[in-house]
Write a protein that binds this DNA or RNA. Structure first.
Lengths: 335, 335
DNA sequence: CTGTTAGCGCGTTCAA
DNA sequence: TTGAACGCGCTAACAG
């Protein structure tokens, strides 16, 4: 174990008290107007010099223990290898940094047990707040989260089972845009390709699609673990039915179904029109570009981030945040 | 602030000593064979019951302070919104979890100051080890990292300026595969599209390309902040020179150049053959699929992860790890 | 065998 | 500018 330099070592070396070193380190000096503890420039410089020379690194564990604050957030996403969550992760990290926070990340891989384990582990790490994308069936984890009393915001999906702070996207309206776009591009027989995962982002879009497109517009479900194989089957049916317009419920199904169509020799955007959800750089490859309904990722991140910081703030002030459950709905945009 | 239940509260409530609660909580009991502290089943149950009832949550800060271990790793990547790093992030998180660790993530966005800030902040958080992708010019951050004495592994890029533990991919051999593949697909006049960023993954590939393809095979540089615009210019020249085979140095330039070519009406894989580096789902869209040299991401993650845990272990045992600087080179694979 | 006492680790902060 | 208590869990040493 690298013997870490402590505040005491510095004090000894500089010939001053431990307390003084602490003050200097925290710039508790001349806190403008409010006369704080004062140190002579000379000793201040000496202390800083010694600290630098000894390569002093304060232990946030000790500080935390005293102050009760870690300045760490816990962010639990579904899958960081999916660009959708990758962009969110990046945005969250940026926002956290701006507020002087660091971020503990976790991927659930849509596994509720993993979700619960992450919540537990982050709680023990004393994160000050959470932003989470619950996996389907994450009741244990959500219960744990609520019981902890720690501030958190749920994004991307909701559940009627818990009334908590949410930041969501209006999937119904988004689907209206998608269907309208597809029809305006000349498609007459339309279908939808979705995930088999029963998360609300999918089910909402499916319900909305069913309502708009009517009962004989098919909805195909690709399973998380066999998207490509399931896409092949879906394409069989799509071709058999003579469908000329497809809406994909998310970027992963989009790519999968496009690949399967191409393998069948179908001309994308000519034989079959596609409108996607979320972003994928595959959309840009075709001409005309594949329209897609894009969730405002940076806005989701900043909105939920601000929401969380507000909760943390209130919590810190001793207010009861357990009754706060505002649901913020953002709009998607057709590209 | 949610008044946290401490070990003392439990002790008082259960009518036992603090120490006993600690033992029970840690299962320091019946450490099989080794007779550890023993507690009667009755009191043990009582303590556990009280802890559960009071919703006890141990503070890892306090524990850490005592044991000197946080079980947290710091992972600094370039850009989590890039699928390449997204996959790595996911893998690292999985591996860390398997070892009982949690992960602090950071994105540098190729900014050396950000890199240094992240290193500093993670050091303060007492991470036990790092895996980092240094931004170009991250000398301050690397110096800080080395001075800290904390275990770390550098991946994806290297610098002759520091001799440290590395896990890299053999870019020279990878480029040989790429050029060979491109030629075998019938390309005669070939060029390369790279990033203008001077990181070794790029420069190595460029040097290797130049050596293999000869002096009149052009190399185009797209700048990080204007890839699409730069790609347009590159395409002008590519068409003017009658180039029929392009190697792209990374996934971002790949997508950019493909889009630009398509906008010019060029038939990908017919008029111009492409061989890419890294993975992008765009590669799968064309027929024949765009060959690409793929870095073994899961292997990079597991290799560097094991490497880091080895270093942490040695460090914990008091050995001097500052002299360890094995460079592990993995092979890329043509897909 | 069952349990307790007491001091440690380290930065913060109040009283002096 | 300093001494010393504090926060909280861990654990060596000790006791019934």
């Amino acid at each position: 174990m690298t013997k870490n330099v402590t505040i005491r070592d510095i004090a000894r070396e500089a010939g001053v008290s431990i307390a003084l070193v602490s003050f200097v380190m925290n710039n508790r000096i001349e806190a403008d107007g409010k006369k704080k503890y004062r140190v002579s420039e000379a000793t201040k410089e000496r202390i800083l010099e010694v600290a630098r020379r000894m390569n002093y690194q304060p232990s946030s564990a000790a500080r935390m223990l005293r102050q009760g604050r870690t300045h760490v957030l816990g962010i639990i996403l579904s899958d960081m290898a999916n660009i959708f969550y990758g962009i969110l992760a990046k945005e969250f990290e940026r926002i956290a940094h701006k507020h002087g926070y660091t971020v503990l990340f976790g991927s659930t891989e849509e596994d509720p047990e993993r979700f619960d384990a992450l919540v537990k582990s982050f709680l023990e790490k004393d994160v000050e707040g959470f932003i989470v994308v619950p996996a389907h069936g994450s009741d244990a984890g959500m219960k744990r989260l609520q019981a902890s009393g720690r501030p958190f915001v749920v994004i991307d999906r909701y559940s009627k089972d818990y009334t908590v702070p949410y930041v969501l996207v209006d999937n119904e309206e988004a689907m209206e845009q998608a269907v309208k776009a597809l029809r305006s591009q000349g498609a007459t027989r339309i279908g939808m390709v979705s995930y088999s995962m029963r998360i609300t982002s999918m089910t909402d879009r499916e319900n909305s699609f069913a309502a708009l497109a009517g009962p004989d517009s098919p909805i195909y479900h690709l399973s998380f673990n066999s998207v490509d194989k399931d896409a092949e089957k879906a394409v069989d049916d799509i071709l058999a039915r003579g469908i000329d317009g497809v809406i994909t419920a998310s970027n992963v199904p989009s790519v999968s179904i496009i690949k399967a169509l191409i393998r069948r020799g179908v001309q994308i955007q000519k034989d079959i029109r596609i409108v996607g959800f979320d972003y994928s750089n595959v959309y840009d490859i075709f001409s005309p570009r594949i329209s897609h309904v894009q969730q405002p990722l940076p806005q989701i991140a900043s909105t939920s981030g601000e929401y969380l910081f507000r909760l943390i703030d209130l919590n810190e002030k001793g207010e009861d945040i357990s009754q706060i459950n505002e649901k913020i709905i953002l709009k998607a945009k057709l590209i």
